[in-house]
Write a protein that binds this DNA or RNA. Structure first.
Lengths: 336, 336
DNA sequence: GTGAAAGCGCTAACAA
DNA sequence: TTGTTAGCGCTTTCAC
């Protein structure tokens, strides 16, 4: 494989001239430029990114710290992935996927090995040790999600409390008085993952605000758990007339449990989900849902980080997106 | 950030000794080893992967060439991603996600930039130009999927013809005589993506073999398209009693169209899907499905490549997985 | 068992 | 506008 030296020889110039022709970091005469590019073409030269990275200390690679806690990747996280990767590519960066069991320690290695210019964090806990670690080392990062204390950190997140508010408000207007929240697995709650905790808090806040009755439960990310939890809830609280489902992988199970219990959706029970439109339209009935712009979030997360890396952005950006409620066929007036 | 030289000084040894202590590539006395490790600890030294990579020409990074053709990543591809990333991590490799619009040319750059040890290809076409390119350069790669000509290439794939056979066979035994195949978008068929073409061929082969009637259609990856295609099929071929759905994002739409047409599943119409269990259990009724071990495939793909890179594997491995049919609630005897 | 020194392929400061 | 050269931080050959 040809190297810069080969180009220099063939073009009859110095090594550094080739380098500068390529980078444009200093003026090069038209003649020389031509000869250099000709040589590059002739030899099918490709600069060695590795060597460049060693010299510049920039790899043009960003990493996504990828949650392993979640057994099943939700469709949301998939959309993040795709859009982050695309945004990165557009900015000339590549995306490294990093899965690690004990992220807290591994994250340090990662930052020090010189391979990664910056990090995108997901599944942020209210007290996230990774944030402290990264801040201490002054390592560039951005978050999808946010913690309790976000001073000086760029993040984009969904405004879960707002989503809950919108949903409950809508259900209340339909006349519902007894609402159940189906949340993510308890493990995530115990880890203090932001959206799990915030959604739960917001739920009870709304319940109290409207003077309603409310229950919540945690639920594993599969249809079976959704089914079981719903059956359990219905047995224990027969007066429930509406469900708010945060954990999208349970949707199917919840609907099945309702059907088996002889409850028609939306005639007897209403259901609002927080999910992607794809999943909302997969079920029958289709689900009234708060639809978060996952794609936009991923893109924003990536761009925040990259802007920062490129020195374009000094002050941190903090964005909370407030998605609208899309009414489909799973909600209706409370008839009980 | 400390470098090897600092360790050497602190431990009172030569630079090369530190290197060899770390790599174990030549004997080091116990005393020296101790001193070196102590110094490493004291200084919190982390070897610079970049520098090592430049010297060894190995980065311990593999890349996944990530399909951009597909608008929506299917849950299958998500599972691939997760399991590939995990397997890579376990073997000490990191996974780079590579999205590119014109893969054919970009792929070359990638291989020559020295950043990537090997590539995993997905969404393989029967005549895939990337294969030729990679082979010419003798660049290490493995495939999830397979093309027409796979001589000397490692791959893991689902045995789609087998899956189709199993499904049709089952439907035939239930008495179904008129079956429709809902395939992926036509764009993928035109690109000659293996599973799209093979599934279609296998479908008609089985249809003829059993002397049935069959129709197929292509369908975009969303519920709405599934809905429309199903309506169209029902209008045109009222005698259809069973559907085989390859494109999993359409499931919901297909079911909705059936329900709206007054057809009960499985009493009036049966449905077999090729999908993950998560999606199969999301709908009501739950779907009888051929369930591919996506996770296993991803892992196998990664391991094939890494084994090759580590020099453990000389001859290519070629694996076709034959998944079983899981019967759920969407299939029943044909009553018409 | 250990050390010295020559790369790996590029960037960028310094000189001209 | 161009050339020379000293790094970037590690691996590895060669000599002791």
């Amino acid at each position: 494989m040809p190297k810069m030296e080969d180009i220099a020889k063939r073009a009859g110039v110095a090594l550094s001239t080739v380098s500068h022709t390529l980078s444009g970091k200093r003026p090069v005469s038209e003649k020389v430029r031509q000869r250099v590019y000709q040589a590059i073409k002739d030899l099918e030269y490709q600069p060695n990114t590795l060597a460049r990275a060693l010299a510049t200390k920039r790899t043009q690679i960003i990493a996504l710290l990828y949650p392993t806690s979640t057994q099943q990747l939700s469709s949301a996280q998939t959309d993040f992935l795709t859009s982050i990767a695309k945004a990165a590519t557009q900015w000339g960066y590549a995306l490294l996927l990093w899965t690690s069991l004990n992220e807290d320690t591994e994250i340090l290695k990662m930052t020090q090995q010189g391979f990664i210019d910056g990090i995108i964090l997901m599944e942020i806990a209210l007290d996230d040790p990774r944030i402290t670690l990264l801040k201490e080392r002054k390592y560039p990062f951005a978050m999808i999600g946010h913690s309790k204390e976000n001073e000086g950190i760029s993040f984009v997140d969904l405004d879960f409390p707002y989503a809950v508010h919108t949903s409950i408000d809508y259900l209340v207007k339909l006349g519902h008085q007894h609402i159940a929240l189906i949340n993510h697995p308890s493990a995530l709650f115990e880890k203090g993952i932001g959206y799990v905790v915030r959604t739960r808090e917001a739920f009870y806040k709304e319940i109290h605000h409207y003077g309603l009755e409310g229950v919540d439960c945690f639920c594993d990310a599969n249809a079976q758990s959704g089914y079981e939890m719903t059956k359990m809830l219905l047995a224990k609280y027969p007066s429930i007339t509406a469900f708010l489902v945060l954990n999208e992988w349970t949707n199917g199970g919840v609907l099945r449990a309702l059907a088996e219990s002889g409850l028609k959706v939306p005639d007897d029970v209403s259901l609002v989900a927080i999910t992607s439109s794809h999943l909302a339209e997969m079920t029958a009935p289709t689900l009234t849902a708060v639809e978060f712009p996952f794609t936009e979030m991923g893109r924003l997360g990536a761009e925040m980080l990259i802007r920062r890396l490129e020195g374009q952005e000094e002050k941190p950006m903090q964005i909370l997106l407030q998605p609208a409620l899309t009414v489909r066929s799973s909600t209706g007036p409370c008839k009980r």
